[in-house]
Design a protein around this nucleic acid. Structure first.
Lengths: 180, 180
DNA sequence: TGTACATCAGTGAACGCGCGTTCACTGATGTAC
DNA sequence: TGTACATCAGTGAACGCGCGTTCACTGATGTAC
C-alpha cells in the first residue's frame, strides 16, 4: 500500500512539518482551543481545506504539535546538560522574563500542560514520552530531575497567571535563587 | 440608586453564591472553555437566561469563580499553618492521588493557571490577589513559600498531564519526598 | 515517444453544530395613594 | 385597606457567530501501453 506522491514527497513533508511547527508555536501562545485550524494553515501558507490531507483531526495535530515541542525541549536539555555552565545558563533562560513573556518559543509543558491534561490519551502520551526523554537527558538523579522540572514549570505557570508584574518577577527570582 | 429586591435578598445572594461555586468546580474540572454557561446554571438549579441577571458576562464569572476558589485555598492554607503536623498533612493531601484525580475540589492555581494567564486582567488579578493572601498565610519566609507553591503546583500540573500512571505517581512521590 | 487516464494535495464554498448572548414575556413582590 | 402600577429574577425561544469538518472541483504529476 505504498502511497504515491503526486506532489514531490519532500515538499509535502516540508509542508507537513511547517503545519506542525506553526501549530506548536500558536498552541503554546494561546492554547489548543483559541487557535483555529484555519489560522494554523494560513501561518503555514496554505488554505484550511488542505488540512485534512495532512491530519485526521485537530486533535491529531495537537498530538503532533506536542511531540514536536517536546522534541525541541529535549534538544535544549541535551545541549544544556553538557557542562555546569550550560546547566546554569539553561536554568536562567528557563526562568527568564523572556521565557515568561514568549511562550510560543518556550517550554511546551509550561505552556500547555493543563490543556494537555484535558485532551486525548494520544496527546498526553506525547507529553509523557517527551518528559521521560527530557528527564533522561538531565544530569543528576532522576528524582532531582523531576523535582527541578516541577519547580521550574510551576514557576513559569504561576508567573504567567498573575496580573501584578512585581509579583510575577518575584516568583521567577525566588525559584531562580532556590534552584541555583 | 438602592436596588429593590423583589425576590428575597438572601435567596438571590444564595443563588449567586451557588452559581459561583458550581462554576468554580466545573471550571477546575474542565477549564474555562469546555464548560458552558448553560451547564453552570443547570448545576446551580436555574436556566441559562437568568445568568445575565447575576453577571455581565462569562468572563466576569471567571473572575468571581477564581476569587472563590482562591478563597477556599486560603482557608485551607490558614488551617494548615497552625501546626507542624498540619503543614505535613496539608502537603501530603496536596500531592495526593486524590487531589490529582479530583481537580474540581482542589487547588485553583493547579487547575486553571494556564487558562487564567490567557484570560482578562480581572481574572489574573483575582488569581494574583489570592496567591498573595495564601503566601501571607504560609509559614516560613516568603521566598520559601513561593518556592513551595511553585514546586507543588508544578507537580500536580505535570502529574495530570502525562498518560502513564506510573510516571504520574512517581512525579507526586518525588516532590513529596523532596518537600518533606 | 505520445496520449489517455488515475491520483491526490490543494482550493474555497458550504454545512452543521454549539456556544454566548439577547429578548419578549411571566409572575411574584413591593410601592403609591 | 384596597387597587393600580412598577420592578426585576427567572424562563425558554431565538439570534448571530465562529468553528471543525466536508465536499465538489482544479490542476499538476505519474502510469499504462
Amino acid at each position: 500500500m505504498q502511497k504515491v506522491m503526486r506532489y514531490p514527497a519532500e515538499e509535502t513533508a516540508a509542508k507537513h512539518d511547517r503545519i506542525v511547527e506553526e501549530a506548536s508555536r500558536l498552541f503554546r501562545e494561546r492554547g489548543f482551543e483559541d487557535v483555529t485550524v484555519g489560522e494554523i494553515m494560513k501561518a503555514a501558507g496554505l488554505t484550511h481545506g488542505a488540512f485534512y490531507a495532512h491530519f485526521d483531526s485537530k486533535e491529531a495535530l495537537q498530538a503532533a504539535a506536542v511531540a514536536h515541542g517536546q522534541g525541541v525541549s529535549l534538544d535544549r536539555a541535551k545541549r544544556a546538560s553538557l557542562s555546569k555552565s550550560g546547566q546554569r545558563l539553561y536554568l536562567n533562560r528557563y526562568l527568564s522574563l523572556d521565557h515568561r513573556d514568549n511562550p510560543g518559543n518556550g517550554c511546551t509543558m509550561a505552556a500547555l500542560a493543563q490543556d494537555i491534561s484535558r485532551s486525548t490519551p494520544e496527546v498526553k502520551k506525547a507529553m509523557g514520552d517527551g518528559f521521560e526523554s527530557i528527564l533522561s537527558a538531565m544530569s543528576g538523579s532522576r528524582e532531582d530531575a523531576i523535582f527541578q522540572s516541577a519547580a521550574r514549570v510551576g514557576a513559569i505557570v504561576l508567573a504567567r497567571a498573575v496580573q501584578d508584574e512585581a509579583l510575577s518577577d518575584e516568583i521567577l527570582g525566588s525559584i531562580r535563587k532556590k534552584l541555583s
